[in-house]
Nucleic acid binder design. Sequence first.
RNA 1: GACCCCAUCGUCUAGCCAGGUCGAGGACACCGGCCUUUCACGCCGGCAACACGGGUUCAAAUCCCGUUGGGGUCGCCA
Length: 483
Amino acid sequence: MTDTVRTRIAPSPTGDPHVGTAYVALFNYAFARRHGGQFVLRIEDTDRRRSNAASERMIFEALRWLGLEWDEGPDVGGPYGPYRQSERSEIYREHVEKLVASGAAYPCFCTTERLKALRAEQREKKLPIGYDGHCRSIPPEEARRRRDAGEPHVIRLAMPREGESVVNDLLRGEIRFANSQIDDQILLKSDGFPTYHLANVVDDHLMEITHVIRAEEWISSLPKHVRLYEAFGWAPPVFCHLPLLRNPDTSKISKRKNPVSLNYYRRAGYLPEALLNYLALMGWTMPDEREEFSLGELVKNIDLGDIRLGGPVFDLTKLTWLNGRYLRRMSPEEILERLRRDLYSDEYFLRILPLVRERIDTLEQFAEYSQFFFTGTLEYGEAARKKLLVKGRTAPQSAKILRVLLEEALDPVMEWDAAHLEPAVRTACEKAGLTPKELFMPLRVAVTGRPATPPLFDTMEVLGKETCRRRLRHAVELLRSMK
RNA sequence: GACCCCAUCGUCUAGCCAGGUCGAGGACACCGGCCUUUCACGCCGGCAACACGGGUUCAAAUCCCGUUGGGGUCGCCA
């Protein structure tokens, strides 16, 4: 073990880059820098079904935009690679076999159906929900035979059934769990990929991570992780669980109730340094109580022990105020530079121009015609409101149709271009029992505010996911209030 | 529901660990005023909190217990 501090951020590339990732990354980054250590980026893409390259790329871009540079990672390399878990399968398999050999883990042949039925029964009888250890009693020789015969199985951790697990959190101190209510966690899935629990423990150890700074939602699986360190004979790192960012209603932050994509903040014109500054205020205070400070100043002053445990509500209003303060301190030249970099680049104009060229006769008309490419949320006039309605449906019904369209068809689109959007929306039409013609107009009006625009999917592509989703949300709210 | 975490103004928080200096400080939002051709910025002022109940103590926002409330977890997701 080295004695330098090593921290990591370990996002899963399964969606848009999340503000919570930035929050956790910020503290990991600051703590590592404060102690002259390393900050590692590790991609946890062991969910083969949901992980995708577009999402991974967006994570890199978003963290770089924020200025949270990592010392080691999939794209920059480093002495502890590979840094993408999908490229480390062999390592996990070797390690899990050690556990099976020592009896700390065992193969489980239970089917998904059996587990489902088990859960249903436990729910019914109001018993604690969890694996019942069914396959734990299979003699090792028999298990070996069945595995060799190619019978589908997973590997589970054999948790002690009695006694207590006492784990430690830097901020909370000792936390105790009765072992009887911790079930045998799956370590290796039937597809041969590890679960988070196995992969993160193995990687944190091999990558010599000294401080695991992550979100509070992991506390309940801490005993399983600690048990793994013990089973491997490894010294565990220091664990520090950060409070969870909250929606205004204090539930865990979610895109239904608060913008969570870092792409949103970038597109909406927040400055990375202001966002970082605001995030640092969530649970932490400068020794002199100053509210405005740079990343460098955070690094100089960070002390994990100073973090408050109450889950902070992410308050857009205060973030926006802070952002304004930053903006006002900048020179016009600096602002122009940001405008060009993050919002209105030449490249952006060049994407709009092909769409509006045919539709304008003088240069002046460009501003008028393409105005909706440059604003945030839209005001819907009387005429637009009417066209927001799906033909033959009431306002609340239309609201629901657009909401479902957004959440089920559009949100999952990671490569936001016409080629991916069109099939997604057409499929949504079928599911909703609507013709394209019936759905396209409300969608068009929702995202542009107008009934006449360049081709819908090209327009949506240029507007970008964040602007489209923001306007759709707004339109849904408006329709709801229309009754 | 079970388990775990948490609890100061509507929100972010200082104070709590080392109990008296707290008739609880700052910031956002809100309200009022000043500045100003307007708006905004900026400045000044105001409103507003120790969840509740016990205990310990000469003394509790600070320590202990309970209640209540909020949150998280309970996936071959992370």
